[in-house]
Amino acid sequence: MGTQNYNNHRKFYPPHHFIYLPVLLILEVLGVYKIFKDPEYQTMWILFSIVIFLMFYLALMLRQHYALGLQNRLVRLEFKQRYFELFNKRSDEVEEKLNFGQIAALRFTYDEEFKELLDKALKGNVSGDQIKKSIKKWKPDHHRI
């Protein structure tokens, strides 16, 4: 695997992102096209388009809801563990002052930068995206969903 950084840290699941969703999108466009071009079966094409749209919507929402919900819990747990290892203290008070974007961004730092950027986030209300952009040495995470 190549070196991970801000520009390439997003992850895709090819069967879902590049096959299933594009096929649904093509079918939806076909259904809407046929609604206007095939008046004899217009009701059938309306129903077809509604079903395809619902499949598309559910695929996006369920995937996001389950995978990201679980991943967010793990990110918080990882933050707590890392904070304890570095400072030998519980992170409850610190974690309350950070939003999830900041906590998630700190995952991509090595320990030396973690302390520095955590301090910046606590004092300067730096966004998660700003934290990611200011990382000098990116700590890759190839196990995300």
Rank of each mutant, 00 (worst) to 15 (best):
T3N: 11
Q4H: 04
N5L: 04
N8I: 02
K11L: 15
Y13R: 07
Y13F: 15
P14I: 04
P15E: 00
P15G: 04
P15Q: 02
P15H: 01
H16K: 10
F18E: 07
I19S: 11
I19P: 12
I19Y: 09
Y20P: 11
L21F: 09
P22K: 00
V23Y: 05
L24T: 08
I26T: 08
I26S: 07
I26K: 02
L30T: 15
G31V: 05
V32N: 01
V32M: 02
F36M: 05
K37G: 12
P39E: 03
E40Q: 10
Q42E: 12
T43D: 15
T43Y: 09
M44F: 15
M44C: 13
W45L: 07
W45N: 08
F48L: 08
I50C: 07
V51Y: 05
V51E: 02
V51C: 08
F53D: 13
F53W: 07
M55I: 13
M55T: 12
F56W: 09
F56Q: 10
Y57V: 15
Y57W: 08
L58Y: 03
L58A: 11
A59L: 03
L60V: 15
R63G: 15
H65V: 14
Y66V: 13
A67R: 08
A67S: 13
L68G: 11
L68S: 12
L70G: 10
N72S: 14
N72Q: 13
L74W: 06
L74P: 12
V75H: 03
V75T: 09
R76P: 12
R76M: 13
E78Q: 06
E78W: 05
F79V: 05
F79L: 00
K80Y: 04
K80H: 07
Q81T: 07
F84K: 04
E85W: 03
E85Q: 07
F87G: 13
R90M: 10
D92I: 00
E93Q: 10
V94P: 06
V94D: 05
V94M: 03
E95M: 04
E96S: 09
K97M: 08
K97L: 08
L98T: 05
N99F: 01
G101P: 08
Q102M: 04
I103D: 01
A105F: 00
A105R: 00
R107E: 09
R107G: 06
F108R: 04
T109F: 01
Y110G: 15
E112Y: 04
E112M: 08
E113I: 09
E113N: 06
E116H: 09
E116R: 09
L117N: 06
L118E: 01
K120H: 14
A121R: 00
A121M: 05
L122Y: 01
G124L: 10
N125F: 00
N125Y: 03
S127E: 00
G128E: 00
G128A: 02
G128M: 04
I131F: 06
K132M: 14
K137W: 12
K137M: 15
